[in-house]
Design a protein around this nucleic acid. Sequence first.
RNA 1: GGGCCCGUAGCUCAACGGUUAGAGCAGCAGACUCAUAAUCUGUUGGUUGCAGGUUCGAAUCCUGCCGGGCCUACCA
Length: 684
Amino acid sequence: MPNMRKILVTSALPYANGHIHIGHLVEYIQTDIWVRFQKLRGNRCVYMCADDTHGTAIMLRAKQEGISEEELIAKMQRAHVADFAAFHVEFDNYGSTHSPENRALCEEIWAAIRKAGMVHEQEVEQLYDTVHGMFLADRQVRGTCPRCRAADQPGDNCSACGAHYSPSELLDPVSVASGTRPEVRTHPHLFIDVDKQHAFLDEWTQTGGHLQPEIANYLKAYFLNEPLKDWDVSRPAPYFGFEIPDSPGNYWYVWFDAPIGYIASTWEWCKRTGEDFDGWWDERKGGETEIHHFIGKDITYFHTLFWPAMLKVSRFSLPRKIRIHGFLTVDGAKMSKSKGTFVLASTYLKHLDPSYLRYYYAAKLSDRVDDIDLNLDEFAARVNSDMVGNIVNLASRTARFAGKTGLAAEYPEDGGLFEQAARDGAAIAEAYEACDYAQAVRLILAAGDRANKYIEDRAPWNLKKEGRIEELREVCTVGLNLFRQLAVYLAPVLPELARRAGELLGEPIEHWRQSEEPLLGAAIGKFAHMMKRVERSKVERMIADSAEPVEEAPAAPGPPPPADSDEPLRREPLAEECAFDDFQKVDLRVARVLTAEPVVGADKLLKLTLGLGGEVTRTVFAGIKQAYEPEQLVGQLVVCAANLKARKMKFGLSEGMVVASGPGGKDVFLLRPDPGARPGQRVH
RNA sequence: GGGCCCGUAGCUCAACGGUUAGAGCAGCAGACUCAUAAUCUGUUGGUUGCAGGUUCGAAUCCUGCCGGGCCUACCA
């Protein structure tokens, strides 16, 4: 095979801190399709992945669950591997960054970076949790924003006013780990002088087609137009990771060793299979190997700047392409636990066939960085009409006739349909190669349409009635061969469909070439459904199953609940004493939200219709838009000030207020009556 | 604030600067009955976000605006 390419493919390493969800699966399905395509084409292609296991988050979670880090990551790896396998994502090796191979490679690459004179030491100020005896990452500290004084903000920027700051600037910082106030400490960190590779990165990112054009532009405009900042790659003990050999007490930051896991996983695979490791990764011996990394846009700069710089100074090969995809939204919005759209892989599998999702993602994915949306109505509609109604239907409506006749010995006249679809194979292959799966699917479906029309025109059911068996056999031979072509083309997306098609036709689908020559003379097996229709009710059950109705309670063996801060009281001191009669003047009532809608022209207001029971309603404009989605409020009980004098606003008359706490913006918390309360009841 | 990307039919998306902007789904009307309420035919539907500019010619190139998503290095 002189033209056989040697290709090594990776997906980003999933973090061992959480389970695989349908957002992750965009990437693994995208990559798996590409790998299966390459294998089907006869190229030598291997797919490497691993769990990303290091870092503070893993330490904290292990502590929370009362197990060792090693136990935690072993458990997670088992779960990840099972989820991927269930979605037909097939790795050649699935390793772990917590492996001896990875440690050895980290040491080797580190030595090369040292040798290139790219490491220096510098003091870093960080918050330190005295209870756990550890430094905290920015996100593990929360506190009051120094600018707008919003409470409970993360350590790097404020979600209320958008201010950026360092954790030590928070007014009353609290460690997420222990709930105590951390102190500021300094510690020497090791930095990689990435800018020493600036000229190389200018060239590598902008030429050679390694990156999508929008990514190259982004890097050029944002990072490469000025000196690259040094990269802090060490963390002081305790840290779950690898200790830096020439800097005792310091550990490599998780993002240093994570991408090296790609190489380590390959090494594991080589040891297991007897493959020549250097032939895959060493740039001197593996020069013919194409390396392709599939990643999400959120980790672009690690893979397009740091990673090439690391590889450049070591003996390892640079990637041929980094293929970057967007995020997944569900029904047009970010995945949400409360809406039930944060669907775990394992939850999906309880309700739906993984092939549905593989097909749907394929139909939506292009070579661009755009986000893709999982629209649940469209999901069901497309699977049913494209796969069941169009493709599988071809087999379904001919296989039963063909069970009796078998396939003809010579391929009949079909008006050029088989030949056209065979010719389309080139364009379909090109689309797969370019990761434009949506285009490939479009071409495949068009061929399916033509085939269905052919069957319609030749009406095999009439041929059978009239006893014209020869003609019937011919029509079935055409229909099933057209179906088989499409099964070959779809095999990267739907390996299970391809397997069943191979079973029906008595010849497994193993190579793209099978789309070029018709299958003749074969007996046809007993037809069984290859894909069931999607039932909308099952989709709904999956969403219901994913919904978390209440805020997730912290795990039982976790740290003690954080002490409540005195910040709210300091921020807004208690009001002057008032008499009972004064209190009585405010008539607070339980009300049900009947309608809720955004107000055109107002970015903070929702217009609510509140029902006080019977026919009594109040229209209220409430400044809660940034904190609540209208649809999550409808039907809910709230408390309203019902006798407040109506106030004319720009958008209409507001006839009361809903009762809520919080500083404003996204931090607004409605008071809600416990179940049992009824609209109209007065609050005493 | 700065940057990247996106905006085309009700929905999801096509359309090397070049005929009258297309397809699937949904809708409507019909046909068919082999097939998983599948299929086939016909059909409705557009000021290509808005306003300028370049050009013989713009959905496509340029500028500005509007709207949406994302990123903004020690966050995984």
